[in-house]
Structure formats: structure tokens, C-alpha cells
């Protein structure tokens, strides 16, 4: 009887609850995970610990770093994963953990295998790539909690670039990062720079011409007079970060490289 009444009530209140639930859920990526196991874990941690998981994660973070100081790979790895399992909200935990996995852990493993001078170069590269894979998988998981995060894309790109020397994939991730609204200015510049490294100079040149008008500029920098009202409100820090003059410098260099006729050159 009780079950019947509750089911009927649940059905009756659903239309009232649904819009509220959609709004609450939309703001919490942790509540729409695809894997049931992860979703159960997250559902319980979120529901029962609430914000308490922040401090718990902080303590596990300290624990992870105690192990890190001893170059203890399995323990460090395990605590880092625990940190983001308990509180996946702070991006900082994901990025720092991935950096430890990709950059510190290969060094420990090489040291343990006899040190940089004794381990053959091929083996060394193998270890570096294995750890890079671990970090990439971890950052993929980060994207389920922080979909479309510029910082995660940039870190993935950095791993492809520095560990696999894979400029093309790195450029692809920089591109994704650059397309995120409010992405930092350096991302677009670096994307263009990588395209240039890939000898896709025309593409790089066109990309920079596209973004130049969106950059805030210091007084006197070409194009400043056409700035939109929102760009005019940019702070000094934003203007410094955008480095419009540097971007214009690249454009001019690549115009020469591409032998763009004078009359077709970019006019800010």
C-alpha cells in the first residue's frame, strides 16, 4: 500500500520537480556520468558529504604529495586518483595530477631502472610514452567533469607535443582550446605557431588575421581605433596578455614568407 501511494505521489510531483531537477543537474557534471559505477560513487559522495569532500580531498592531496616527495609511484598515483574521485570539481587537482603522472613519474621509473645514463634511450622513451598515456587517459576523465575546459585541452596538447613530439595532434587540441569562449589569448597564438611548425603557414596566417580584431590593444597599436566597446574596457593585464603587437609581427613575417602582394596584405 505504502509503495503504491509513494509511486503515485512520485508520478504526480514529477512535472513540478522535473524543471528544477534539470536546472540543478545541468550545473553538476558529476551527476551525469555515463558509467553506472562512477555515477553511484559520485552520487553518494555528492549527496552525503556535500561540500565536506573539499576538505577531504585537500587532506588526500597532502597525502599524495607526501608520497610524491618519496617518489613512491603506486601510492602517489593512488592518492591522486582518490583526490579527484572525492572532489572532482577543482580543475587544479586534475591538471597538477596529470603533470605529475606525465612528467615526474617517468623520471622516477627511469631512476629506479638505473638512472638516465644507464637506461637505453629506447627504453627511456618507452617509459615516457607509457606515463604520457596514463596522463592522457586521466585528462580524458577530467573532461567528463569539466567538459570543454581550455586548460585540459592545453595540457593534453602539451603532452602530445613534449612526450610524443606529435605536433599535429597537439595543434588539434590547441585549436579546440582556442575555440572555447574566453580562452586565454596565448592559446590562439600558440595554435598559430604550431600550424606554422607543421608548415601549414597559410592556415596559420589566416587564423591570426581572424583573431587579431578580437584582441584588445594598447593605444597606438594598429586597429585600436576599430575596437568594439567591450574591448575598450579591457584592463592593462588583458592588453598585455593579448600581445596584439606580437601577433601583428607574426602576420607581417608570414606575409613575407607567403609572398603576399603588398595590396593584399592584412590591414588592421
Amino acid at each position: 500500500m505504502v509503495t503504491g501511494v509513494l509511486a503515485a505521489a512520485g508520478w504526480a510531483v514529477r512535472p513540478m520537480e522535473e524543471p528544477a531537477w534539470a536546472a540543478v543537474k545541468a550545473e553538476q557534471p558529476a551527476l551525469h556520468l555515463d558509467s553506472l559505477k562512477d555515477a553511484v560513487g559520485e552520487g553518494l559522495t555528492v549527496g552525503l558529504l556535500g561540500g565536506f569532500r573539499a576538505i577531504l580531498a585537500d587532506f588526500f592531496w597532502i597525502k599524495a604529495h607526501t608520497e610524491w616527495a618519496h617518489s613512491n609511484l603506486p601510492q602517489t598515483q593512488s592518492w591522486l586518483r582518490t583526490v579527484t574521485a572525492v572532489d572532482p570539481r577543482p580543475l587544479y587537482f586534475w591538471l597538477e595530477s596529470a603533470r605529475v603522472m606525465a612528467s615526474d613519474m617517468p623520471v622516477w621509473r627511469i631512476e629506479k631502472s638505473g638512472g638516465g645514463t644507464k637506461v637505453p634511450a629506447g627504453v627511456k622513451q618507452g617509459i615516457i610514452e607509457q606515463q604520457a598515456e596514463v596522463a592522457l587517459q586521466y585528462l580524458d576523465e577530467a573532461l567528463t567533469y569539466h567538459p570543454g575546459s581550455t586548460h585540459v585541452y592545453v595540457d593534453i596538447a602539451q603532452i602530445y607535443l613534449s612526450k610524443f613530439k606529435d605536433v599535429a595532434t597537439a595543434a588539434e587540441y590547441y585549436h579546440r582550446a582556442a575555440l572555447v569562449p574566453d580562452a586565454p589569448y596565448f592559446v590562439s597564438r600558440d595554435y598559430a605557431y604550431l600550424l606554422h611548425r607543421l608548415n601549414r603557414v597559410q592556415e596559420a596566417y589566416e587564423w591570426l588575421m581572424k583573431i587579431y580584431p578580437t584582441l584588445p590593444k594598447a593605444p597606438g597599436v594598429p586597429g585600436e581605433e576599430h575596437e568594439s566597446p567591450s574591448l575598450r574596457q579591457a584592463s592593462d593585464y588583458q592588453i598585455d596578455s593579448a600581445q596584439a603587437e606580437v601577433v601583428l609581427g607574426y602576420i607581417r613575417d608570414w606575409e613575407k614568407e607567403l609572398k603576399v602582394p603588398e595590396e593584399n596584405r592584412f590591414k588592421p
Binding site: L6, A7, W11, E17, W21, G47, R89
Partner: peptide, 13 residues
């Protein structure tokens, strides 16, 4: 339907 949704109250985030 039988159990209320407690996750709905999780607005602190």
C-alpha cells in the same frame, strides 16, 4: 517514482 530525489537539494555547488 517511489523514492524522493535528494540530489535535487544539492544546490550548494
Amino acid at each position: 517514482y517511489v523514492f524522493p530525489n535528494f540530489q535535487l537539494f544539492n544546490l550548494a555547488d
